[in-house]
Design a protein around this nucleic acid. Sequence first.
DNA 1: ATTCCACAGGAAACAGTGGTCC
DNA 2: GGACCACTGTTTCCTGTGGAAT
Length: 404
Amino acid sequence: MSVITIDPIEKLLNAAETGKSLIKNRDVLHFTYIPNTILHRDTEQEQVTQSLIPILKQSRPSNLLVYGKPGTGKTLVVRKVLSKIQERVEKSNFPIVLVYTNSKVETTLYGLLVSFGRQLGLDEKELPPTGLAISEVFKRLLKLIEKRKINVVFVIDEIDYLTQLVIKTGKDILYQLTRANERLNQGTITLVGISNDLTFKERLDPRVISSLGEEEIVFTNYTVEQIRKILEDRIKNAFIEGAVSESALNLCSAMAGREHGDARRAIDLLRVAGEMAERDQSESVNEEHIRNAADKIEENKEVTTLRSYPLHEKLLVIAVMKSSGTSTGEIYTCYKNLCKAVGQKELTTRRVNQMLSDIELSGIITGRIVHQGIHGNTKKFKLEISPNMVKETFKSDLTFEDII
DNA sequence: ATTCCACAGGAAACAGTGGTCC
DNA sequence: GGACCACTGTTTCCTGTGGAAT
């Protein structure tokens, strides 16, 4: 009797070749894909255009702050409006240059300014990637703007991260940027800040608030109905006809709309569900695919987070897993033993506490402060994901071979 | 009312790295 | 080649916390 085994890779490849393809254009299933209308943000497009229109008249527009939760289309709208304005003035002798940066990606003040400089055309020789004083980098940027007589629009996405950096380092780049026009004889600088956090302004220097917040626009969350329209639009362009059932569309918009009003996540959910349906060789995307996709996205997020941790954070996750529900002191003891087992020098309790708090922010573990009277206060940590997931994620790492 | 415990967490200092400038 | 700079990761020092025990 012969045993027939099916190679899983073979099975998937066959399915891909012979199975029915539900998705005809994968690019449309990404948030950044720009259809004719930007995610039903007509009012906001008008507001942004209105506040930036002075550029067309060759004068510096008011600095602008744009607020809104993630996935509300803020960045897309700002970029689209600015590139339209840019097209208009391209051939004039007072052109605008769009410079975009994300403070979450550029994690240092220096990096942020260098990113500006690169986009303005400064090469490594004119603006080295490190080694200069921040004031020197700033001086070089202004010199270039003056020399080329340009209107520069600095778009700073996630500007709330920049304010954190400013507070941390005590170097007020924002203040200098908002006052830079006073130092420029030719050329101008306009700031457009984009933020997910409506309260971040409270942490700013009042002098910065007055010049940075000259104009403010708030992007409200999408409603379930708006998300449904956005998804309908994408489905029409991305899937073959009839590939997404009405009930799946309803569920997808309801889940995304009710939870967060985030179009980015709604589109992502649809994409993953579509891919799952294709893999199953299903005739269409149904409600079950949407639910499974939601679970998968959640799971992927946790695995990616675990993988991204440096060695000592990984050891701490394992320590919490091994002594789940116990106090910081016990976790520290367990962590020290793990360090010994893998031949690493342990870090101090202070640093370990800090790391535990960082890990807690990601939701992988949770901590609860417990007051024990004369036995002092402690924080009890608990693993929030399944121990299996931790083991599976770390098992390929030889370092942890003997401890998990 | 006071003392005590076992931490939490802020602030500052320090070490090390990788760079520029003069 | 030495002074200077930005930055990261870490340590050291210190103050605050709050309920049980005294």
